[in-house]
Design a binder for these strands. Structure first.
Lengths: 97, 97
DNA sequence: GCCACTCTTTCCATCATGGAAAGCAGAGGG
DNA sequence: CCCTCTGCTTTCCATGATGGAAAGAGTGGC
């Protein structure tokens, strides 16, 4: 009775993306700038990683204009949450926990 | 009071090497062929990854001739065990556990 | 000397990744 | 209406990682 089926996911495994997913798994929604700062990467790099996560169907990108400021918020999709959970389960399996 | 200081380690993080370390962390010593089969990689690929782990000082390679057969056994060094533990701690931190 | 068994190393092509810089769209100021 | 600023996005480019195939090397057996 495994809670989640362990499954290695290369898209999630890459360091920057693993961090991004880890953050989003906890907060549900986070702004682009906040993630960029938390992960310590440049705008371009974050943008590219987010794009990969988005194309994998793991992250949803919502753009809105609030107080005349552009704001991009990120959130894990249901699939993203599942993939992250499965990947973490796999890491746990590998780590022997 | 952290048991182990979380520390991301790129050498350990790469999928094949993470598996190798995970195996060795549990069994202490394992033969080349057994690791190769467990990780499902070719001889050349395993050899190259082991070499990287060895150069990082994480794995000790011992060659012996037993029953007229060459046998290479692998084991984590103390540093390897520490690096693996620290990396796993970091993964746990990222995963929010 | 020749062969088999076990890794090792070389060669090669591909892919991932990051940094810098140019590009773009929307909002506000002049 | 043009210019600028903000906030990402995309392009360009160089580097490093990685895997597969094949050749190579060391050791013992025949």
């Amino acid at each position: 009775m495994t809670a989640v089926e362990p499954r290695f996911d290369a898209v999630v495994h890459a360091p920057p993306r693993l961090q991004i997913c880890g953050l989003l798994a906890v907060v549900d929604t986070m702004e682009f700038a906040a993630v960029r700062d938390a992960v310590s990467v440049s705008d371009s790099v974050l943008s590219k990683h987010v794009k990969q996560l988005e194309e994998a169907g793991y992250v949803q990108v919502r753009k809105s204009t609030i107080a005349s400021r552009q704001r991009t918020s990120l959130a894990l999709t249901k699939a993203g949450r599942a993939a992250f959970g499965a990947h973490v389960a796999e890491l746990r399996r590998i780590a022997g926990l």
